[in-house]
């Protein structure tokens, strides 16, 4: 709880600048310069997004115009329909959503349990184990790449979604464990003890006392996991072979490559397809901005 409060305060401070610094009637030149620089940077940041959406609404001939047409007229929203009907995007969407659900459930359930154990219970070798957790956070994934593939071949899981889902059920990722543990430690232990006296088992205590109190941290974990899975490319690239098993990222990559090798690239179609992969995370961000900031800060400053 203490965490939310400090963060909230930080946000409030950010929202409301201190009074004494505001100069009435006199422009601060430094501030004006900073404002202009930030405006320019913002244009640079937003331009690629704008260019992508604008292109996705053009016809092939409108793309070729020089000087470029910034806002297409007339617009061609039918590009989206064409792009989605050229490849089995319904499969891509379904597979991505299935992986998302499997990974989210696995991550949230198992990281909560592990984080609770580290935050509240005592046992021999607990500290050694926690050091192992932390060290896996720094471990470059490359070292496990080849043998992991072999394990999944032996399990006959290659070209199924399982290699992308199942590992999430085993601990849910060191970073998430670390983040939730920090949060759980700040929940008064008396609450759990009281529940135990009332006869609640450990799992009950975790999921009915701790989880509701740690909502912001759990939301942060969920959102970051969602985004990570959404953009994952190497995993699906290695484990999925048949087109009907592809994720969105993999399907769109195929679309890009196909269009590039052809005599002419149909950029509007490619951009329409890639808008589809970029939009959902942006929407999640717009709706849950608060939790994002919290998640990144929890991870970044308590390290």
């Amino acid at each position: 709880m203490a965490n939310t409060q400090t963060l909230d305060r930080a946000e409030v401070v950010a929202l409301a600048p201190p009074r004494e610094r505001r100069r009435v009637g006199r422009l601060n030149l430094g501030d004006v310069a900073v404002f202009l620089v930030l405006c320019l940077g913002s244009v640079a940041v937003l331009l690629p997004f704008f260019w992508q959406v604008s292109t996705s609404l053009k016809s092939d001939s409108q793309v070729n115009l020089i000087p470029p047409m910034w806002i297409p007229h007339p617009m061609h929203p039918d590009n989206y329909i064409t792009a989605f009907s050229e490849l089995p995007f319904n499969y891509f969407f379904r597979n991505t959503i299935l992986i998302e659900m499997g990974v989210l459930a696995g991550t949230l359930i198992s990281s909560t349990m592990v984080a609770y154990a580290f935050a509240r219970l005592n046992a021999p070798f607990k500290n050694t184990l926690f050091i192992i957790v932390l060290s896996t956070m720094m471990l470059p994934g490359v070292i496990t790449l080849v043998p992991s593939y072999f394990i999944f071949v032996k399990l006959h899981w290659v070209d199924t979604l399982l290699p992308l889902i199942v590992p999430a059920w085993f601990g849910g990722g060191a970073f998430n464990i670390f983040l939730l543990r920090q949060f759980f430690q700040n929940i008064p232990a008396e609450l759990g003890d009281a529940a135990a006296i009332d006869g609640a088992g450990t799992l009950r205590t975790i999921f009915f006392i701790y989880v509701p109190l740690a909502k912001p941290a759990i939301a942060a974990v969920a959102i970051m996991t969602f985004i990570g899975v959404w953009h994952d490319f190497m995993g699906p690239l290695i484990y999925l072979n048949s087109e009907h098993n592809f994720t969105l990222a993999l399907g769109i990559n195929e679309f890009i490559q196909e269009n590039q090798t052809g005599a002419m690239t149909h950029w509007p179609l490619v951009m329409a397809a890639s808008t589809a992969i970029i939009l959902p995370p942006l929407l999640v961000f717009l709706f849950f901005q608060r939790y994002f900031v919290e998640g990144v800060l929890l991870g970044g400053t308590k390290g």
Partner: peptide, 28 residues
């Protein structure tokens, strides 16, 4: 009992670490 609960709760991580990290690392 507390230690037992601890290890039960942490066991997914331990198994996952062994199967998906430690063994593949040694394997590499």
């Amino acid at each position: 009992r507390e230690a037992l609960t601890f290890y039960l709760l942490v066991s997914p991580f331990i198994v996952g670490f062994l199967v998906f990290t430690f063994v593949p690392m040694a394997g590499s």
